[in-house]
Simulated scan of single mutants.
Amino acid sequence: MNTDQIAGKWKQMKGEAKVMWGKLTDDELDIAEGHKDRLSGLIQERYGRTKEEAEREINSFLSRY
């Protein structure tokens, strides 16, 4: 799934992202707007994940769609 597809479906995906990454606020998820790099940075910051770990989580999350 490319960035445009993610951004287009982000409103649908945001609820499930909130469940998966509950420490992220609605405002932070709005800022991410489905951009993998922004979301990765937020996950790294809030959860102390490495870049690779965050990217794996995001890819796993996106594979559902």
Score class of each variant (00 low, 15 high):
residue 6 I to D: 07
residue 1 M to F: 12
residue 43 I to H: 07
residue 64 R to G: 01
residue 28 E to P: 02
residue 28 E to R: 01
residue 18 K to H: 00
residue 51 K to D: 14
residue 32 A to E: 07
residue 57 E to R: 01
residue 10 W to S: 13
residue 45 E to H: 15
residue 41 G to S: 02
residue 49 R to S: 11
residue 18 K to M: 00
residue 24 L to K: 02
residue 25 T to L: 01
residue 61 F to A: 06
residue 42 L to W: 00
residue 32 A to T: 09
residue 54 A to Q: 08
residue 38 R to Y: 14
residue 6 I to R: 11
residue 1 M to C: 09
residue 38 R to G: 06
residue 52 E to A: 11
residue 8 G to W: 04
residue 23 K to F: 10
residue 53 E to C: 11
residue 3 T to W: 07
residue 13 M to I: 10
residue 44 Q to G: 02
residue 10 W to P: 14
residue 56 R to Q: 14
residue 49 R to E: 13
residue 33 E to R: 07
residue 63 S to G: 05
residue 4 D to M: 10
residue 2 N to Y: 15
residue 49 R to K: 15
residue 41 G to Y: 01
residue 55 E to M: 13
residue 53 E to D: 14
residue 34 G to I: 10
residue 46 R to Y: 15
residue 22 G to S: 09
residue 25 T to M: 00
residue 37 D to W: 01
residue 7 A to E: 05
residue 19 V to R: 13
residue 53 E to G: 08
residue 43 I to N: 04
residue 65 Y to G: 06
residue 41 G to W: 04
residue 48 G to V: 07
residue 52 E to P: 03
residue 48 G to M: 09
residue 46 R to K: 15
residue 19 V to Y: 05
residue 59 N to E: 15
residue 35 H to V: 15
residue 34 G to S: 05
residue 24 L to V: 05
residue 11 K to D: 07
residue 34 G to M: 06
residue 7 A to Y: 02
residue 32 A to W: 06
residue 42 L to S: 03
residue 20 M to T: 12
residue 4 D to Y: 12
residue 17 A to T: 04
residue 31 I to C: 05
residue 43 I to C: 06
residue 33 E to K: 08
residue 20 M to E: 09
residue 55 E to Y: 11
residue 50 T to D: 03
residue 32 A to R: 03
residue 7 A to C: 08
residue 27 D to P: 03
residue 43 I to R: 05
residue 47 Y to W: 06
residue 52 E to D: 12
residue 62 L to C: 06
residue 25 T to Q: 00
residue 44 Q to A: 11
residue 56 R to V: 14
residue 19 V to T: 10
residue 9 K to M: 12
residue 10 W to N: 13
residue 36 K to D: 12
residue 37 D to S: 07
residue 35 H to P: 08
residue 14 K to T: 14
residue 5 Q to C: 04
residue 37 D to L: 09
residue 63 S to A: 10
residue 36 K to T: 15
residue 36 K to W: 03
residue 46 R to C: 10
residue 24 L to W: 08
residue 27 D to N: 11
residue 28 E to I: 00
residue 5 Q to W: 12
residue 10 W to L: 13
residue 17 A to Y: 00
residue 61 F to G: 02
residue 30 D to L: 00
residue 12 Q to N: 08
residue 16 E to H: 08
residue 32 A to K: 06
residue 27 D to L: 14
residue 55 E to V: 13
residue 24 L to Q: 03
residue 44 Q to W: 12
residue 57 E to P: 01
residue 23 K to R: 14
residue 8 G to M: 12
residue 33 E to H: 12
residue 22 G to H: 04
residue 43 I to P: 07
residue 44 Q to Y: 02
residue 19 V to H: 05
residue 53 E to K: 11
residue 29 L to G: 03
residue 43 I to T: 02
